[in-house]
Design a protein around this nucleic acid. Sequence first.
RNA 1: GGAGUCUUAGCUCAAUUGGUUAGAGCGCCGCCCUGUCACGGCGGAGGUUGCGGGUUCGAGCCCCGUAGACUCCGCCA
Length: 589
Amino acid sequence: MYRTHHCNALRVANIGEQVKLAGWVHSRRDHGGVIFIDLRDREGLTQVVFRPEENAEVAEAAHHLRDEDVIQVEGRVAPRVPGTENPKLATGEVELLPARLTILNRADVLPFPLEAENINEDLRLAYRYFDLRRPQLTRNLRIRHRVAKATRDYLDAQGFLEIETPILSKSTPEGARDFLVPSRLAAGKFYALPQAPQQYKQLLMVGGVEKYFQIAKCFRDEDLRADRQPEFTQIDIEASFVRPEEIYTLTEGMLAAIFKAARGMDIPTPFPRLTYREAVGTFGSDKPDRRFGMQLVDFTDDFRASGFKVFRGVIENGGVVKAIKAKGFAGITIGQVDEMTAIAKNFGAKGIAFIKIENGEWKSPIVKFFSEAEKSALQSRLAIEEGDLVFFAADKWDIACEVLGRLRLRVAEIQGLTKDCEQLDFLWVTDFPLLQFDATENKWNAVHHPFTRPHAEDLPLLEEKRYGQMRAEAYDVVLNGVEIGGGSIRIHEPDLQAKMFAVLGVSENDQQTMFGHLLRAFRLGAPPHGGIALGLDRLVMLICGEQSIRDVMAFPKNNRSQDLMSQSPSEVDPRQLRDLGIKIAEEKK
RNA sequence: GGAGUCUUAGCUCAAUUGGUUAGAGCGCCGCCCUGUCACGGCGGAGGUUGCGGGUUCGAGCCCCGUAGACUCCGCCA
């Protein structure tokens, strides 16, 4: 037996006991005579004291210990010398006086200090197995485990079955780019890794499973972000004979169980709800961060007959005039104005208008065009005060909203409005648009996915080809401005599904080739069904207070989808390629 | 595909306007040190300033190119 206790176990009550500990040399303080070692395992630290007068041989060996050596010590638990107790350690009142020291393994010079912050991430990723020893990452993995366990326990109690679906599956044209896996037995053909178990879980509903869940790995071959990895994990849920209300209640209960288990917190349920129109119109985002105000206020009616031609012209062309008030932001720097203008242009606006309120005066090149009525509308509805700054966007509704929504987030970031904010703001965003027109592809795309059910009352719009006005029975759950999950009620009728495919530009022939199994399944008695998928990585990231999902994954990949530790992806043996019937094309020069 | 920021010792960073031999802390090596917990003291090693080119009497610093990292846009049903 390597150890009788872990390194966070010994207390005053253990004084006098003979114990064995094993772990890593966390730090050493060598006084020439007496030597102190903090011994670490995943549970904590225990001070080990080597004294030459007690055991000269062991003390001599201890002189040669280095950080991160793996050792085993056996000896007596003793009280610390009065006055030298360490209140920072749970084990700080006692220490171990070893009679034996066994070096289980030596550590080389370390690639980076475990204690330090701000280590280059590529270095950390290259030595991930080492980086994982940092208490913060150990804690994150532990929280992740608790989240997964709470999820399983909760869904099990609700009667859901955990069912695995294939990783080798079929490529489909919709959605993200697939990772492809070549087939050896069917040379020239490919499997695809699942972007989500979407079709399988719907087919499980056709199979009469009724309540399914899976903590599922998903794969998407797209460019990465701090909160996106090529492979990630979803809490995937589907149920039959459900309405959105039942999905909301289930999800709220699950998140409550998760936060209770992982953080010991009670979160208030049910969550507030906003429609997509309300969320975008008020916060400029379909995943609004409501922990601070700065809401979008609509002044379209106030400027409909304005003497300011820019605003009036936009409104006459069906656009809107909206504004946000950035409290106390009149001291904006030239550089910040440039940045705000760049944001506005990046999201489709021609520019940005703003008013600074300084020394009781409204400072802006456009304010001279405003009537007294217009000024008073602004004054009262924005509650403008000295030192404030007002941003305007005059454009089509969606552009005006998005521009102000982005400025709102940037201003909040600059002003540190959510820094050290402990608040957890959950909400549902409902009634998403079903379809969105893509001008570059010149076709309609599904906002959620092609299996999403249109609102029953919007079905006539399908026949009228007024696709842009159709609402979906789709919903997202948002926490602090981050989309942590989304789902929908699905189409279960073959005819409606075929119609949707047609609108999305999937030909009759392609429908049969790519989705024939689904359409056939729907002809054999498919129950009404729907579900939701939550991004486990993002959820754990928020629970852990991390800025990147890489910090809550054991072995994440970098921005270019490479594993810097194992150096994957890598070239393969030509024989492997020959077996697969694959030739690498000459690189284009 | 695009934009921005960054790249100097093992790690984190500094280096005035382009100017002497590129520094500091931590780590590493050696010596000393018997109650520390960020132990302390003395000494030492460690650098092609990412790479390539250019401007200049002179480049870590300016210019061009290139590679890489991160953040964002596009993309992510």
